[in-house]
Every structure is written in C-alpha cells, then in structure tokens.
Design a protein around this nucleic acid. Structure first.
Lengths: 342, 342
DNA sequence: TTGTAAGCGTTATCAT
DNA sequence: ATGATAACGCTTACAA
C-alpha cells in the first residue's frame, strides 16, 4: 500500500523527502544547498547523498514564493533579430549560465509603451535583476525601474543619469569619429544614411553633424533617414535616394552595417568605384565587414562585452558589492578599411 | 497605527486585499481573473474595480506553486546570434506576447550534453510547454522530454519519430533541390562547402550527395567541410581551400548564406566571374541575398513561421486540442537568382 | 455561482 | 549548528 501521494505534486522528491532520508530537518537541507558553510561537514555529506540518491532538484517556484525573490534576470531588448542585440543577449546568457539564474526575455519592439507593459509584467515576478537596452525610458518606465527593488543595468549607451547602473559607450562620439575619419581621408560631400532612427541612431547622427559642422561641411541635404526598420535592402534604396538628391555625394556614413552593405552592393551594381568615387563607413563592425570587397570601414562596438559586463555588475550588486563607478564606458574602435582608403 | 505588514511581502496588494475590497472570497477573485465566465456579471465588475484601484497583479510564482504549472515556455536553441534561430525565437516571442506566457531561454551551444543539462534545469519549473531546436536529442534528453509532462515541439526539421510534435522542413530535400538546380543550370564540378556541420548541415550535405550521384557527378574531393562555427570569413577560407583542391570547380552549394557571402566576396576579390566561372547557391535566404551583387540563389526557409507555428501547436495542445497531424512540414522555396544564372 | 479548508514546496523567524 | 513553526500568495478539492 503506497503512501497516498499529494493531489497535485507530480511525485517529484521534495525537500522533506530529502530531510527524512538524511535524518535532518527540512531547513537544514535548505541551508546545505544554499550556504553549505553554515552546515556541519557531517550533515552536509549525508544530505548530499540523499539529494543524489533521490535526484532532488529544488522547485524554483516555491523558492521564489518563500524568499520573495526569483532567480531570474529580466532582459529587455528592442529586437531579437538585430544582431547587435542578439550579441548582447549572448553575452548576458553566457555570463549567467554558470549560475542558477534564469533569463526572462522581453522584446520591446522599439516601443516605449511596450517597454512599460513588460516592466509592469516583470515586476510581480520579483526578478533578481533587470537589464534594459537604452537610456531613454519613458517616465513611467523609469519609475518602474526605480521601484523594482533590484539592481538595474541600462545597456548599450552611457549617459548622465543612470537609474542604477549603466554599461555602454557614446554613440555620439562614435558617429563623430566615423565622420572625422572620412573627412580626414579627403571626403567632403559625406552623406548620412540612417534607418529606424531610434535614440542611438539619432545620437550617431548628432555626432556626424558635429563633425561636419566643425569642418564647415554640413549640409542638411546630405542627410537621408527613415523611421522604417533597417535592412540591407533599405540601405540600397536610401543610397539611391541620397544620390539622386545630391549627385556630388562622395561618401556616406551609414547608421549601421546593414545599411552600409546595401550601399556597397548598390555601388557594385551601378559600377560606382569604392572607395574612389564613394567612400563608405558603417557602424557596429559585423564580422562580414572585414571580409567584404572592398572591406568596409566601421565602428567596432563591444556588444558581447556589454552583455557580460552588465551581468557582472548586476551580480556584484546582488552580492552587496556595488561598483565604485556605476557608469561604465566600454568605448568603441574605428576600424579603417578599404572602403575609405582613398 | 498601520496594520503590521507581513515580514516578507514587499507590500504589494495580494488577492486577499482584492477580495476584501470587493467583498468576496479570494477564490472568486482568482476565478474572475482566470475564467471570467464562471463568475457572475455583478461580482466580476466589482472585482475588476478593486483590481484596478489597487493595481493588483497576480504573483506568477505563487500561481505556479499552487497550480504546479508555470506559465512559461522553455525554449532551447543552439545559438542566439545565428540569425536563423534568432528569427525562430522572434516568431515564438511574437506569438506568445498576447498571452501571459513567459519565455525562458536556453542556449545549448550545439551541445547535446548542454541540452541535457538545460532540460534537467527546466524540469522542476514545470513549464507549460517546451520548444526545442532539432530532432537529434540524446537518449537522455529524449527521455527528459517525454517525461516533462507538457507539450513538446521539436522545431526546424521534420522526421519520423517525434517526441510529441514537430514543425520544420526537410534539410535533405533542401540540399538536394539546391544542387539539382545548379546541375540544371549547367554546372558540373559543384562543390559543397559547409561549416559547423551540425545534424541539419549533415542532411543538407546528404541531399547534395544524392543529387550529385543521381547525375553521375559525385566526387568526394568536391566536399569541403569543417566543424568550426560558420561565418562569412570562414566561407572565404573554405572556398580558397576548395579551389586549391579542385581547380576545375565551377560552382558551390554552401551550407548557409554566411558561407555563400564569403564565397561571393572572395570571388570579387579574386576577380572570378559569378555566375559565369563559378555559380553560388546559399541556404536560408537571408534578406541580403537578394540585394547582393550579383544576387545570390538560396533556399528560402520559413524560420519565423516555424516559431509561430510551434507556439500555435503548443497552445492548442495546452488547451487540450492536439493537432490531427503532429508533424508539420512547412517546406522551403528555391530562390533562383543571378549567382546561378549562367 | 460562491466559499471553506487545505495545501503547493520552500525559506524567514525565532528558539535552542 | 540545528530545528519547529509559520508564513509566502495562490489554487485545488470539495461543500453549500
């Protein structure tokens, strides 16, 4: 006659089963698992044996309920397929895979409202930390983050007023560095081509503008943008528009590498010489920019590292060790390549 | 004098607060939220008012513990940055964003052992469904899936022996169709270039081989593969190797579009005419293949749709409506483009 | 249709 | 260092 199993449990061993088998109290098992140093050597071994024998695995839901903390990192990104965010996500994932923290994913689709909604939904779960892309949260989102009761890391950009912590770099400086490089290489009628135009793209554009104005080269007609999501196809189209608008164009700084690639392909197709007739600079430095023909100058951004660092900071904060400097600027690097080697 | 707050709760309103305010029992609130039709019109309104006023949001952890079911979809992919899986993930995410299901992410890094570990970790959470990439689980993983007690969808491929449900297409047929197309276009010394060589790549290779043998064109020296992860850079290198090995090569079927792009760029660099001297076919049909110059022939695969469909099937199964046919083949499409238009 | 009682599996509290 | 007890916030089972 079997012991009547509880109505709901699937029959998995619970902490009570382990405790019984090891001849100790449930709480001791709990401690042995979470803070082994607080349990005597002896009991620890007995408990471990019981755990192994029963194949016991703690129930994260019960744990979260009892401790009012889920071992979950909430991660909010604006896109899953944009490889920039995919790499940030990979950095976050890799840094978390040794721990018992899970990742709960949120895709804001570049929408502030959707971000608010997701933050609202993540809240009741009491995540251990929140990592969000960008620094331009709505006032509502900002308050939700401030009252989340857990470490918060804003990633991709740095700025003056962190909710809690920040890891990123200056998109303005990146845009300016790219543009200054092209000016230095002798380009004069340098266009800006940008899609999506989210806040980070806007700041790259501002950097472009600053550099152009400083050189006395700025001309509003050189700017071609669209709110439409970025793609290689769109890069081609925007380049055509830009060229139609300003036939004397001799270079383009592209919002990102997808656009740059579209420009490059269109140049091939239209037999426009790169870098001679048109110079091209991209942004992010995807793997393929180095292999492209001609290879494409770009701004290397530390996406993966941003992901890793954000987790490191959050983990430290969870452990009570807040960093000296809550805002970390990981910088960027200009990769000079053939596409601007006039 | 404030009512002594419980020691742990963060002070958020609970279902009991709502029940008190609405003058009903807690369970009625619970029902009103999950199955409104089972509560009278009147109470439903009162409860809704109380919920709104208090800003009540159910605690998913408590809910999961009480019901022995978390509203979580466990999703296992081999890579976060490979855009193929990023798109599957996006499809899954988009299909779930109307619901209250969360996504818990697992990255297997193409490792069967890591997949086992993740399945083990996901188990105790009692996910509502499991979506896993591939059909080649280890015996251990397979048993974990079979005993997970929730709907399971294997995605990306179809095969004869589903754990539960499957959505995908035949990589063998895809590889064969691509190769047959090249043969039809007049190519004879068609190489196969592949990186990573996971099970899906292997089956594409098998399809290539079948087509080549059927045409009496097969030659083992035409095959160039490596277990190294795929990249555009690698595509260039493998193409060089292939060409060194077989100077008479007149075409290549690439394992995926990254490789194909690397080949294309190398052809540009080495002034090899495409499609005249070398024909190129890729696999997956990324956005940029159509824009590339020359545009690249590829096999269009329904990644996003696979994600959506997998969720639809899982959701139906959760609702007790299992599909007639547990294995769904979404097919693929050959996109004939300039790179093979000899 | 609504409510009462009893957990769900774990950890916090307080005591020993 | 260890344990008894009472939550944690919700849902299941059953009763009315």
């Amino acid at each position: 006659m079997t012991k009547p199993r509880s109505r709901r449990g699937g029959g998995r061993p619970t902490i009570a089963d382990v405790a019984r088998k090891a001849g100790v109290g449930a709480i001791t098992v709990s401690r042995a698992l979470r803070a082994p140093e607080r349990v005597s050597e002896d009991l620890r071994r007995q408990i471990q044996a019981a755990v192994d024998e029963l194949g016991y695995l703690p129930d994260p839901n019960a744990r979260a309920l009892a401790s009012a903390r889920a071992e979950v990192f909430g991660v909010l990104v604006p896109s899953l397929t944009n490889s920039v965010f995919a790499e940030v996500l990979r950095g976050i994932y890799d840094s978390l895979s040794d721990s018992s923290f899970r990742i709960q994913l949120g895709n804001t689709h570049y929408s502030g409202l959707e971000e608010e909604r997701l933050l609202q939904v993540f809240g009741p779960q009491r995540p251990a930390a929140l990592i969000v892309a960008g620094i331009d949260q709505t006032p509502v989102s900002r308050r939700l983050l401030e009252t989340a009761g857990c470490p918060v890391v804003q990633v991709m950009e740095t700025g003056p007023d962190p909710v809690d912590m920040m890891v990123g770099f200056s998109h303005f400086d990146g845009g300016r560095a790219a543009t200054e490089h092209m000016i230095e290489m002798g380009y004069r009628r340098i266009g800006f081509i940008g899609a999506r135009m989210d806040p980070r793209s806007q700041r790259r554009l501002a950097g472009y503008r600053a550099a152009m104005e400083a050189a006395g080269l700025f001309d509003a007609r050189l700017i071609t943008t669209t709110p439409v999501p970025s793609s290689v196809t769109l890069g081609r189209e925007l380049f055509r528009d830009a060229l139609a608008k300003v036939p004397t164009l001799d270079g383009v700084f592209c919002n990102n590498d997808d656009i740059a690639l579209g420009v490059l392909f269109e140049c091939h197709r239209a037999s426009i010489a790169v870098p001679k007739t048109i110079g091209i600079t991209g942004f992010n430095d995807l793997d393929m920019m180095e292999v492209a023909f001609p290879s494409v100058t770009s701004i290397r951004t530390p996406r993966y590292e941003i992901g890793r660092r954000s987790v490191a900071m959050a983990l430290a904060a969870i452990a009570g060790k807040r960093p000296q400097e809550p805002v970390v600027d990981l910088g960027f690097e200009l990769k000079r390549r053939e596409s601007t080697a006039r």
